[in-house]
Amino acid sequence: MAKIVMCHGVGYTYKHREGMHSDWYRALRSGLVDTGLPPVPDADVAAVYYGNCFRTAGAKGAEVITDELAAVPNYGPMDLDTELELELLRAFAENTEREDAGAKGAVQSLLRRLERSRLLGDVPAKAIIWMIKQVHRYLTEEPLRDAVLARWEGVVTPETRVVVGHSLGSVVAYDALCAHPEWKIDTLITLGSPLGLGAVSSRLRPPLVPGEEARWPGVRRWVNIAALEDPVALIKELAPLFGKDIQDKPVRNGRFAVHSVNRYLTTEEAAKGIADGLGSH
């Protein structure tokens, strides 16, 4: 039974549970070993995989995509057509270098800023729009959200001590933990989390209401790790919003792909947080 449960963010639509588990476990193990901490057995780690919840009804479940970007719809600036999507785009582009005067259109300018910064990796504008639309869908489509949260059933067991959520996965993890106060989770670790964004926190289950105390997700300890360069984790400190007991840990993930889950899992802060939750540190 898994002692550590991990939940992914956007971009896993055409990937699979086994691949996610393998990639995350290698990074997690490397982070522990490099920090001088004992590694955990593969069997102690489980993945909450929900990527295929975002597929269309006609998508082939067993389809293997070798070039995931080729499977992304050919989105353009006009496809960001809701206020929530535009709010997310503006937030993610906040700390990137501004365009020169004369750039065509505000939305196009923001997308170009994110593309040029490479803070989300070497991805084109259509992939950035695709990611934003996945966040939008999770926050606004209740049947989809229910399907995503149902993926936690049977993964979390009485032996589970640590939950790790990356990016949108941190939002999913928060929703899941709040929905299951009977779970005896010791530590929640959020990596590159957008939970501090008003567009996200106002749509949680339960929502964060200004002036009211936020719902604590029923854990002994919450460690929030945010790279200073990460545009998704625009709000680096969650303690002022969700409670003073959150341990906010700033890190540096390098100039490019700062939102990468592998970069986060190999930090000393993540390794020590996981080891402490397991009682081995």
Rank of each mutant, 00 (worst) to 15 (best):
A226K: 01
L195Y: 07
E213T: 15
L188T: 08
G192Y: 06
G218K: 03
E229D: 14
K236F: 11
L191I: 12
P207C: 07
D230T: 09
G211W: 11
V223M: 04
A233S: 15
L195H: 12
A233T: 02
P194M: 10
V219R: 10
S193V: 06
R203M: 12
V200M: 06
P210H: 07
R221S: 14
G198I: 03
P231Q: 12
N224R: 05
P194V: 10
V209H: 08
T190S: 14
G218A: 06
L228P: 00
S201C: 14
I235E: 11
A227R: 00
G198P: 08
I235L: 09
V219N: 07
L195D: 04
G192R: 00
L234T: 13
V200S: 01
P231C: 11
N224W: 05
L228Y: 05
S201R: 15
V209S: 08
T187A: 08
P231W: 06
V219L: 11
L208P: 00
A227G: 15
V223C: 10
S202E: 13
G192K: 00
R215P: 00
L197E: 08
P210W: 08
P206L: 08
W222F: 11
P207D: 04
I225C: 04
E212K: 14
P210M: 05
A214D: 02
R203A: 09
R221L: 14
D230K: 01
A226C: 07
I225H: 06
R221P: 04
P217T: 07
R205T: 13
N224H: 11
T187V: 09
G198V: 03
A233R: 00
A226V: 08
E237P: 00
E229G: 07
L228D: 13
G218S: 06
D230F: 03
G196M: 06
E213R: 14
P206V: 10
L228M: 13
V223L: 09
W222A: 06
D230E: 11
L234Y: 07
R220Y: 10
R221Q: 15
T190W: 01
P206S: 12
A233D: 02
L188I: 09
L191G: 12
P206Y: 10
G196V: 13
R205N: 14
I225N: 03
G211L: 03
L204H: 08
K236L: 09
L191A: 10
L191F: 11
V232E: 01
L208E: 01
W216K: 08
E212A: 14
P207M: 04
G211R: 11
E229Q: 15
R203Q: 09
G192C: 05
L208I: 10
L188H: 09
G218E: 02
L204E: 08
